[in-house]
Amino acid sequence: MQIVQRRRLPLRLIRVRPGGVLPILTILAVLLVLVGIRQPDFLDPPSLMSFLGRSAPIILLAAGQYFVIVCGEFDLSVGSLVTAQVVVAARLIDSDPARTWPVVLLLLAFGAAVGLVNGLITTRLRVPSFITTLGMFLILVGAVYLWSDGSPKGGLSEEFRRFGRRAVEDVPLLGRVPYALLVLLAVAALAVLLTRSDFGRTLVAVGDNPRTAELSGVRVWRTRTIAFILSGLAAAVAAILLGGYSGVSFQAGAGLEFGAITAVVLGGVALGGGRGSVVGAMLGALTLELLFALMNFYGVSGALRSTVQGAIILLAVAVSATRSSAR
């Protein structure tokens, strides 16, 4: 007897499987069509490129959040972490170009350290991550205010800001390609590689059934902690892009954690872990941004953003919950 292999179908890519990217691609396509109807020039390379560049931070955060959610946890601290990073960067650089690179490295280390703390508190002290990262969120907000006496100090150097606002000019066909987009593509490639690695596969298994993983020799606490570190690193990169793009303020990262979680859920990643892809999560973020752009074109108030996000989270979770219990 051999493995009974119904040899792979040629249409494998198109096969709908739970946690796949087909649903989000469909939604994205529909939104693109709607945008195309209302605002055809949005789809021209220059405006499309700048839209992608603008969306890069939230897509990065969604990728980071994916690692945390797929192993069964949450990271609510990323929004305030982004704010903290931007404010810290401004004060440390203090408009001195020579400090740019050391500060960039420091921000990455800072993001990783916050992730490490989140991870260790969650896994070693057994505080539910929802609470851990909510606590971290509040701590960071307060600490930033304290450290900067209530208003941001210093300023970012032009070198620092170019990641968020400059572009490679005169690219054939595309015109301007923002640096932010290049950074995004590089990080996205890394993220995809990571999900295909032993670590990535093990991470999903941990989210699906931590008991089994533990009894198969996985160090569950370590795996989850690394996921938090990845989320912290993603927040650091997002902060560098955002600081460059929109400047220093206490609002720099406000609400981004919910944006990222919405995006991840929209991208078909199961809350509670065990299912979903990082590509889906990133496409979810892109879709969310496109939806906001569309709302803008149709003159819907920007104040509705969080309402829309909330509705999407509820709807996406409801859809996946009813589908998975349909059998």
Binding site: R201, T202, V204, A205, N209, T212, G217, G274
Partner: peptide, 28 residues
């Protein structure tokens, strides 16, 4: 409860312990 990772593939389930214990020394 603790033998399988239900929503992962047959192959991922079978590879779980090898992935956890040995870094792919002899090639993945």
């Amino acid at each position: 409860g603790e033998g399988i990772v239900p929503r992962q593939s047959v192959l991922d389930n079978a590879l779980l312990a090898s992935r956890a214990i040995f870094a792919a020394r002899s090639g993945r």
